[in-house]
Design a binder for these strands. Sequence first.
RNA 1: GGCGGGGUAGCUCAGCUGGUUAGAGCACAGGAUUCAUAACCCUGAGGCCGCGGGUUCAAGUCCCGCCCCCGCCA
Length: 509
Amino acid sequence: MSRYFVTTAISYPNGRPHIGHAYEVIATDWLARFARLDGRDTYFMTGTDEHGLKIAQAAREEGVEPQAFVDGMVQHFVAMCDRLNISRDRFIRTTDPDHKAVVQALWTKLVEAGDIYLDRYEGWYSVRDEAYYDEDELSTSDDGTKLAPTGTEVAWTVEESWFFRLSRFQEPLLKLYAEQPNFVQPTNRLNEMKAFVERGLKDLSISRTSFDWGVPVPESPGHVMYVWLDALTNYLTPSGWPAAGWEARWPADLHVIGKDVVRFHAIYWPAFLMSADLPLPRKIFGHGFVLNRGAKMSKSLGNIVEPMSLADTFGVDPLRYYLLRAIQFGQDGEWSHEAIGRRINADLANDLGNLAQRTLSMIAKNCDNAVPPDGPATEADTTLLAEVSTMLADARAAHEQVRPDLALDAIWARVSAVNLYLNEMVPWTLRKTDPARADIVLYHAAEAIRRIALLVQPAMPESAAKLLDQLAIAADARSFASFDAKLMPGTPLPAPQGVFPRWVEPEVE
RNA sequence: GGCGGGGUAGCUCAGCUGGUUAGAGCACAGGAUUCAUAACCCUGAGGCCGCGGGUUCAAGUCCCGCCCCCGCCA
């Protein structure tokens, strides 16, 4: 059985989760659920990146210890996962004891490899940004203080720091990109990484002495690890490396991340792993951002909408569906209240929901509440089933490409095909003239809906389950292994109920 | 500033190596129908294909210039 280990980036819990967090975790959940249903040994991990100066500062402002601060904040992220039906196998926290142990082991391994050395780091440092800036990036404010491009105050800072010999990995990384052009996707991101590496790599400062909220550097009092080494290593943690048996859960098949952190995942992370002589993840996918009416959400614009409130308004499954279907994965996308409402009506209520309802209610009224009898198939019947049966291959291809939107496109093309089939076969008319033929038509429609519902599961688990319940599909017959099975005529069916109600804009008081 | 991507119907986008009347979905209008969640199905309207030159029998598709947007880097 093939393994599938997929991760999201870990979130920085210095604020509450926003729709960007929801988007990434929903998309990755789709990937994981799909792989699981497709019979793969799947492990899906998401979590939080809890160290660093900004967390320490936020905690101080609230007058609590950093650990207490993150313990509180992380609950919002866990609650979001619960609410959005995120089927993670582990919610990892960089404050977890096993994670700290793995990070320290990795550090030691990098030291042994000769890729870590002690030096001094100095430069213009912004406490707020937790970053150093070059002289020519700075501006000077009216009162003479130096400002970073982000507008925050910087001060000349000198600190002792451990460095990682990133420069040594320029050629190996370029070789990697050349040999595995799918290592980073979409391709334009790969090209950006190539260009970046070709310009030359500077060694990387990987420890700090200016604060202590981090994983301590082994045998180096006063130093904590630079956040990216700590954070990236979370992916390795569940393997238990270097303890025996780690190969069972490493390397990852896919890291799903935002386009803003591609560099860390596509350059630093592979370099760390190469230094430690560990296998590399198979693929890194940088998705786009989801904007509210094309504008980034911000406190000053007052347009922050929390994902939980969208789930309250539209329902979890419709929200998941919108984000997965309406945005090309890898591109930026937008959402609006109206756009989600339109999608719900056009795709869920009118197309799939109505298809299920018209089919199931005809069966309920005319077929004794049971799967209708099958019989000699016409060309139209076999054509329909042939078209529907190729849907699985299309969806698998989309999954391989990390394109949930394309998978849903492929599924909805079949939804339309079944609606058209019914219109052409007119079973409601046949009922009066040729009831046996009407049954056969309904049988084929129901069978097509069964297959569609199977493939809808990763996107809308609860709604798909309702559809499958109405077709009396057993729990152990809902994986893709049962895709080519057939409905058993005569199987008793429950009373049909609408699964996707129309979205009606609430009356404005 | 350097490198890269893009500007096609109201919206989101397809249009491969140049070749018949430029396509899809949504939204909109009309029709048909009534099994169904006023849904499904059919038809239609709607495009100086960013702007200006050029190459060619023929350019959304190639070349040059310009304008605008986005990404990476500086």
